[in-house]
Design a binder for these strands. Sequence first.
DNA 1: TTAATTTTGAAACGTTCATTTCAATAAAAT
DNA 2: ATTTTATTGAAATGAACGTTTCAAAATTAA
Lengths: 193, 193
Amino acid sequence: MPKVETFDRTNVLHNATEVFHKKGYNGTSMQDLVDATGLNRSSIYNSFGSKLGMFMEVLSFYRNNGNKQMGKEIVQNQNALDTLQSIFCWYVTDIIEDKDHKGCLIVNCKSEMVNQEPLIRSFMEQNQEQMMAFLEDVVHNGQMEKIINEDQTATQYALYLYSSIQGLRMTGILNTNKEELENLIHTILSVLK
Amino acid sequence: MPKVETFDRTNVLHNATEVFHKKGYNGTSMQDLVDATGLNRSSIYNSFGSKLGMFMEVLSFYRNNGNKQMGKEIVQNQNALDTLQSIFCWYVTDIIEDKDHKGCLIVNCKSEMVNQEPLIRSFMEQNQEQMMAFLEDVVHNGQMEKIINEDQTATQYALYLYSSIQGLRMTGILNTNKEELENLIHTILSVLK
DNA sequence: TTAATTTTGAAACGTTCATTTCAATAAAAT
DNA sequence: ATTTTATTGAAATGAACGTTTCAAAATTAA
């Protein structure tokens, strides 16, 4: 009977994510991945098919991890505005902890590859869909509770928030001042009040 | 006495910009640049030193062109809010005209290279400084005219606008719906009123 | 132990990478 | 016409690229 996959796939993805995050897709070589994961070159191809195949798994891994971490910040039964506050605060924390100014892997990849690689474009479209749906839901709840104004529809505010998050991610690459970032998210969220 | 540079440097930079914009720095090869510019490989090295050298000139070229174009949109003697409106509208136009979803060369480069290449980091820091100073000035004028509120300082609003612009640039990669984008900038600017 | 299957190591695949070299050609000022 | 410098073309540099190959080693179930 077959020998079973021995290496820790989560650990391998974690290490691969680190390299891709630091160097970008085109800046990362297969040798970089061999070095970072400790996996044999052949094993990478056996398990992930190609560099792009591995990267797609890395993207999902990164997103799932982010969602998991952010989920912890969101307390049940807090109002919609506090939920948004928690989300944005998580981004600020993530920015401040990012000592080497890498930014967000997903945002970086969007700007690097959406116009070049259909698989990436699909991922990003699906990612946007998912985030927009979530944000719209939160805003909608806030509007029902009269905590968020109705100057704009929930959909319109969701796009505003989605755009603001991407802006925050880009800004955080060069600006990691906690007070300035917290003031920034205060300004962003003030629109909804 | 010496033969003088014969090729049209502006035209060469224009063509080089197109390739770098489409493929990103790491995605662009020297062969791509030879093909796009029509210049000989040696001439590129003679005139620009290296791939990075050429890219640095391309970055400045792209920025100067953008500033020039945007300058035309800004009418003299309009109030501060209208100036901001003009600026954001120019971005929307640029997004809509960008049929192949390349996004902004400078934003893309920031996310690809700031943490890898000191020259790029300096460029981006200087670029941010410049934009922030300009935005701060506009906001400050608006506040003097009582057209922009004073809930936040001009500096704080400048960061908010700078961040919003980067967000708009990222959003515009996948979302090119004119009405949605115009509503987005309306929401962004509503904070200042 | 044997049979089945995956992981591993190392080498090689052919291509492309950024950059250099150099002799030949072209143009301007003396 | 001669000198000076730039542009050009084409080839070559050596290293790195993503991917494939394959026999040896390892592991599990029968």
